[in-house]
Design a protein around this nucleic acid. Structure first.
Length: 164
RNA sequence: CCAGCCGGUCGGGCGGCCGCAGGCGCCAAUGCCGAAAGGCGGCGCUUGAGGAAAGUCCGGGCUCCACGAAAACACGGUGCCGGGUAACACCCGGCGGGGGCAACCCCAGGGAAAGUGCCACAGAAAGCAAACCGCCCCGCCUGUAUUUCGGUCGAACCGACGUCGAGGAAAACCACAAUCCCUGAUGUGAUGGGGCGGACCGAAAUACCGGCGGGGUAAGGGUGAAAGGGUGGGGUAAGAGCCCACCGCGCGCCUGGUAACAGGGGCGGCACGGUAAACCCCACCGGGAGCAAGACCGAAUAGGAACGGUGCGAAGGGCAACCUUCGAGGGCGGUUUUCGGCCCGGCCGUUCGGGUAGGUCGCUCGAGGCCGGUGGCGACACCGGUCCCAGAGGAAUGGUCGCCACGUUGCAGCGCUUGCCGCUGCAGCCAUACAGAACCCGGCUUACAGAUCGGCUGGCAAU
């Protein structure tokens, strides 16, 4: 049963590679900090799946052209790729927020909240970039996951409901 | 027990649920993604951040580049001595200086008689030595005091500065500047002499104040971070290395030490201010860049080369040729023309090389950890045994919940040595500080809640 599902994630990885352009001439020296987890196989329940990651600088820059949904804890940028493939996620925490320990912790909480609770609310064919803020450090985990799920649904809320 | 110094270790624990990355084994598959390089599963076991992983300040390994395995200049660094080390700006042991009662701590600690520069403010003067106040001597002037000597001390004339005193008178005073002695008649105080006291004048001497001039000084004052050795004594008009002792300094000698240096005695008589984290001089060291190093694989597109096929000198480009020119131009030849000699040149296919995106490697066994022994005061070295201990890559090592420990705050109770005390219970907070490997080592520096171990010093108490 598990082996049958094994082929799905590589599709996502391939699509991300195709989206890469030559614009990424180098690493951003200071500010740009993308983060993400690794592609993993689905184990049955949707909440335990972490989406495909954005890794290239060009991909992050592309999402910046999309919609921006400002939240209390973070800024969410959304771009519809239009290909209907799996959703992808990138996380950015700038150096202005804090030192490496603080940035790591913010990134990990965001990733875990997405993996466990909010990934099901992401729309297919869409790239998301979360720009984390320092408040995430002290925010209750429940509040974080609710905020995340609400922002993911965003405009697509009605469509999701309609589908159900 | 209190106060302190030095060194070391640790820096939350247990559990539930859900996850991530590496390694090994087994299973699955011969698939899927990609043009290729290459990448992509499941299960089990196992491993998975630090003392600073930080700052990126030194020293190396490693890699590439340059080169004559060179030297010099420049530039940069280091700077007491000896040792350790792969090396160092690190470490250890000493020396010197400074601080502390002590344990111990701190020091950018070569050269200032090679040269140049600087020394603000203040101060008379900041490097040539001089002299503001002061001190001393001499001369002159003025004044004061004292002593001595001489003279003078009102009222026609003569005498008289005053005093020369307690019975009366007179006079005078309401207080003394002096207020005593001798003589002893015309005898209770005459006379004379002395003493005492005052004012003034003059002279001299001495001392002192002040002024002016000349000279001698650098002890003292004052300014300063620093004032031309320090302290004491002698000496002197006052002073001064002027002389002496000790200390300091300089020179050379002896002794100890591998050396830095220490000790001793001798000579010199002070000449030589500070600053080298000012330039500088001396000695020694250093080629440059860094894992985004570098190696390999390697598209699409564009461009390059070779070969083959096709096509053919069209567009276009390059070169050469007479005169002149900055250039435009002219000449010559040919001529229907927007012309000219030579070379390259289009399209298709195959192959090759460079190389971008991308991918893989580099990538963790190492000047390695632990234990023991030997040598050494020690840093450390050597020997033996044993272990394998993160390798990610826009970056894993986690998220969340519960309990506990620790801490802290408040309340209540108890205890006494009544205190910023200890213990117990309950409740709240925090549930930890600093901080996240990025090629790897050795250091340095900086940050850090708290816990804990060992050694040492000073004090108090007890034995």
């Amino acid at each position: 049963m598990a082996s049958a599902r094994a082929w799905l994630p590589p599709v996502a990885a391939a699509s991300s590679r195709r989206a890469a352009t030559g614009a990424a001439s180098g690493f951003p020296p200071k500010c740009g900090r993308g983060a993400g987890a690794l592609t993993g196989p689905s184990t049955g329940d949707a909440p335990q799946t972490y989406p495909a990651r954005l890794t290239k600088r060009a991909e992050f820059l592309a999402v910046r052209r999309g919609d921006k949904r400002r939240g209390r804890l973070f800024l969410l940028e959304v771009l519809d790729r239009g290909d209907g493939g799996p959703p992808r996620l990138g996380i950015t925490v700038t150096k202005k927020v804090g030192n490496a320990v603080v940035r790591n912790r913010i990134r990990r909480r965001l990733r875990e909240a997405t993996r466990v609770y909010a990934a099901r609310d992401m729309a297919p064919g869409t790239d998301y970039v979360i720009v984390g803020r320092r408040d995430i450090l002290d925010a209750p985990f429940a509040a974080l996951k609710d905020e995340l799920a609400r922002r993911f649904r965003g405009k697509a809320l009605s469509r999701t409901l309609h589908g159900q």
